[in-house]
């Protein structure tokens, strides 16, 4: 297995784990937020977990699009860059 394949395997695993963690965090967050515990701090923790889970899901969803956008901008820049001037040696 070469290095690129190894990194791709890690990426696939990270994506799958991230989706599962999003679900888990979202459920735990709602569970804490909806639990009958009259402690404000615990509820804030639940709210924070839900927000983080939603942000995580958002980034997983748009990640490949953002990488494509970076590729698009980079290719635009590379084609629009002018040719360097030819150096003129003093005679």
């Amino acid at each position: 297995m070469d290095l690129v394949t190894l990194i791709k395997t890690f990426i696939d695993k990270a994506v799958v784990i991230s989706w599962f963690l999003f679900l888990l965090t979202w459920i735990i967050g709602w569970a804490i937020k909806g639990s009958p515990i009259p402690i404000g701090k615990a509820r804030r923790v639940g709210q924070g977990l839900i927000e983080d889970a939603v942000w995580g899901a958002f980034w997983i969803a748009v990640g490949s699009s953002i990488f494509w956008l970076i590729y698009y901008i980079a290719s635009l820049l590379s084609t629009s860059f002018p040719q360097p001037p030819k150096p003129q040696l003093p005679s």
Partner: peptide, 10 residues
């Protein structure tokens, strides 16, 4: 994706 994974950690 590791960053996203950490984001989604409970």
């Amino acid at each position: 994706y590791l960053g996203v994974l950490i984001y989604a950690l409970p």
